[in-house]
Design a protein around this nucleic acid. Structure first.
Lengths: 201, 201
DNA sequence: CCGCCGATAGTCAAACTTGCCTAATACGCT
DNA sequence: AGCGTATTAGGCAAGTTTGACTATCGGCGG
């Protein structure tokens, strides 16, 4: 969990602070940390002895907020986790790749169109990140790591947009989905008109 | 869920078949579908009326296996989901990016070394995929989509390896993590030797 | 002055995942 | 023939994640 890292960084914090920071990083998109998970995670880390409750102040009639702090054991665990992530190469799982596996399930024109659209969206994203990086706000008020992250996203985005267009070209050109010798229908008769056919495993 | 798609593709199937296919795709790595999830998913899809139980044959004393088939409603749902994934641009969430956000928590030499290592691992992966693509087995016995997928992974891998090396260079060159004007320590005094210090948020 | 809206903190039950377990048969090895 | 291991199917309880919800206060437009 990277909640641990945040607590370490912001030292005495309460859940809501963590939530805001996480959202400001847009971390709900690229880490799997939705706001709802935070409090549970904090409590669980507390039970494991990685965090320690520091105070439980109450301002007015608002819900009491509990402040947490990291313990030495927590620091240890955090560094272990961090090194794991930095050194290990964990496969990134991409929902689009999952969908792409079902390529033959879409009519060719639609598949090509979708890919082209995706390519454009990616390029737009790249442009917007370029603009962000050029802006003074990012350069002067955020850690440099942010820019470097953007750089990676830009590079990935460009490569992927190129790929989308290349594949779209092939699909439009009618490149067959299955190799010559292999039995099976080339497309999955999308929509209706599906009759029984022999599919031996 | 992409289980739905598999059932549609392999028509009457029982859970174990789905599991094997999924594993043979390596889908446990890039989709979030571990073998244990499959049966639950099948049952749930059945309850929702997207799948239909076809038979429950029992061979010998083995556990009975229930065979499923997709319903028209299921086909609809599948196509909706598929289009969603093809057209929408869902952010891929990458655990490494999460870890990279904590860059200053690692000593510079280690961070640089980790990045270089990562770069090499990525290049090795790229090479192995290149080899796979060149091999006849892939070309002649798998859908072309597989090769295209590999192509994307190769491109991504290369771009990312380049990035790793670029960033490692910068880290080694001692580029500061924080912009000039900003208060805060440059690194997070990793390891020991951490004494209390004034960390005003 | 009043009502509406957003920010503040956090809870909760439901849904989803996951790793591990069972239990019998087929198969290869000595 | 005896034995160990892999394969075949699938169950299950425990852990995680999530989206929706509560309830209040400060400020702002009308």
């Amino acid at each position: 969990m990277m909640i641990l890292g945040l607590v370490k960084w912001m030292q005495p914090v309460h859940g809501y602070d963590v939530r805001r920071e996480l959202l400001s990083w847009g971390a709900d998109k690229w880490a799997n940390v939705q706001p709802g998970s935070i409090y549970h995670a904090l409590r669980k880390l507390g039970e494991e002895g990685l965090l320690r409750e520091v105070a439980t102040e109450q301002v007015g009639v608002r819900p009491a907020r509990t402040t947490y702090e990291i313990t030495p054991k927590g620091v240890d665990e955090f560094e272990t986790l961090l090194r794991d992530l930095w050194w290990g190469n964990h496969q990134t799982n991409d929902p689009f790749m999952a969908a792409f596996a079902f390529l033959p399930a879409l009519p060719r024109p639609e598949a090509a169109a979708a890919l082209r659209s995706r390519g454009q969206v990616l390029r737009a994203g790249v442009e917007s990140m370029r603009a962000s990086m050029a802006s003074a706000w990012i350069r002067d008020s955020k850690p440099v790591g942010v820019s470097w992250t953007y750089e990676l996203w830009i590079a990935r985005g460009e490569v992927e947009a190129d790929w989308c267009e290349r594949v779209a070209d092939r699909i439009e050109a009618g490149v067959p989905y299955l190799p010559e010798g292999l039995a099976g229908r080339d497309d999955w008769n999308v929509g209706e008109g599906a009759r029984e056919q022999n599919n031996q495993s």
